[in-house]
Amino acid sequence: MNAVGRIHAVLRRELGAALDAPSAWVAAAAFALALQTLFFFAGYPIGDLRFPGLWEGRVASLAVLFAWLPPLYAVLAPAFTMGAWAEERRAGTEELLLTWPLATWQVVVGKFLASWLLLMVATIVAAVPAALVVASLGPLDWGTAVSGAIGAALLGAGCVAVGLVVSAAAREQLVAFLVSALLLAGAWSVALFLRVVPGSIAEWFYLVSPQAHFLDSAARGVFDTADAVYHLSLVALALLVNWRMVEARRRG
């Protein structure tokens, strides 16, 4: 079996385990319910980017839906990743997993892909029906929708990668969930403090915020290679740290 086959085996194991547990699909359903309620009725009344809900604004746009993804991912991604390492360790299956004829990086990548796929499936489940309803009631800008979807996929990958690092470092699932949720929510909320920090710091705040790399670009229909580099480097470095931690434990 080659490396891809081994990663695929880990991916299937993780996905199977996630789908067998009710928590994944309950989380997906809750996410869809929350996202759509906010999209149709509440709008996005936070920070500089303020949008009315779909029925109030009466414009065929998914801007509100995209605006809510970073804060909701800050909850959903940790929910999908919290058990990836912490639960293995608690249940004592981590030892078993690492005795398999697999390189550590293959396990790390397999777990990452499984959590990311789960997040994407949850996003598709929540967003596609909403997009179809909007498109049937008005002329939706599909170019912006596709760009936003690509941006959401990259954003989700970053969130999952961070969540996995925290899960690898934490002893318990709950701790992993809380810490990664706090980290991701903190990164999202950075954009809210831009107006109260000095100019020299503001640029750095903006640089790390998902607003700069998702809401101000992909969610508006503009694909920027710098955003892709931002998200992909976050994923690569987070996976590297994750591998380093697991590898250290394996050799420990």
């Binding site: 912006t144 760009s147 790390v208 920027d224």
Partner: peptide
């Protein structure tokens, strides 16, 4: 991220 923002930024507008 800083380097990419300064030197690797190429934007494509996909909106209609």
């Amino acid at each position: 991220a800083r380097f990419a923002e300064r030197h690797l930024s190429a934007r494509v507008d996909l909106s209609e």
